[in-house]
């Protein structure tokens, strides 16, 4: 049986009267890409923010790399966060810093005794991996949406995380850039052996990168399996999602 790197059990989250997650169970296995699909506002982003302690659930348990996230103190949580990369929906690049400084930021703060040349080498290597070495001295406002996304992923990968969490990696991008981002996600899986959760409502992305797909409806995973297994159903909500998505993309 494959080793589980993330285990979510009976997770409940509500914001006031709004129940977002109602008893979510999920396992992410080592080395796999798991795509979480669902309509906007169904709690997909909330779910992955729980995994790094940015949000706390009302009940349930979250175990990441055998650590109970809710039971960790801030120092232990920081240690865990170094093993989990988080790529934000809007890239979340630091506006006041250049691309080089953005990539250096997590590195110099978390890896001790690095020489200047070693930092430069790692930054250049990370940029090379996402094909944006030439952007090293630019500031985020000078970059396109796709470039910002790739720099955001490079900044996350510089610490060589064991798990990657992608929040809407292809949202708002043109189809060609989407394809590039999808390839990058697959490369990360192959090159780093990272396990990933990819939050999206882009079915092309789900089909391209997902080893497994989980569909979130009404605060629970209603369907889970390979892409074809998930959509081999008469469930109207699933079919509606499928047809609407592909009609829209055409």
């Amino acid at each position: 049986m494959p080793q589980s790197v993330i285990q979510i059990k009976d997770l409940h989250v509500a914001f006031g009267d709004n129940y977002v997650l109602r008893g979510v169970d999920l396992d992410l296995y080592k080395g796999e890409n798991l795509v979480v699909l669902g309509r906007s506002g169904t709690g997909k982003s909330v779910l992955i923010k729980m995994l790094v302690g940015l949000l706390k659930p009302d009940s349930g348990s979250v175990t990441v790399l055998n650590e109970d996230v809710m039971a960790l103190d801030s120092i232990e949580l920081d240690k865990l966060r170094l093993k989990v990369g988080f790529s934000f929906q809007n890239s979340a690049l630091y506006d006041s810093m250049t691309v080089r400084e953005n990539l250096e930021f997590p590195l110099v703060r978390n890896v001790r005794n690095l020489t200047r040349s070693e930092i430069d080498r790692q930054v250049e290597e990370a940029l090379d991996n996402v094909g944006l070495k030439q952007a090293i001295n630019q500031v985020p406002s000078e970059l396109s949406g796709g470039q910002r996304k790739r720099i955001g992923i490079a900044r996350t990968l510089i610490l060589k995380p064991e798990i990657m969490l992608y929040d809407e990696p292809t949202a708002g991008l043109d189809p060609i850039t989407c394809t590039e981002i999808n390839s990058l996600i697959n490369e990360v899986q192959e090159r780093n052996g990272a396990s990933s959760i990819i939050i999206t409502h882009d079915l092309t992305c789900a089909k391209t990168v997902g080893d497994r797909v989980a569909m979130l409806f009404d605060g629970q995973f209603q369907r889970m399996g390979t892409f074809d297994e998930v959509f081999a159903t008469d469930d109207e909500r699933v079919q509606q999602f499928y047809h609407y998505n592909f009609t829209e993309s055409k």
């Binding site: 940015l54 920081d78 966060r81 934000f88 979340a92 930021f105 997590p106 703060r109 610490l159």
Partner: peptide
């Protein structure tokens, strides 16, 4: 723009 969250998840206070 989630830059503060990004700092937090990169283990920076």
């Amino acid at each position: 723009t989630e830059q503060i969250d990004a700092m937090e998840v990169s283990a920076t206070n």
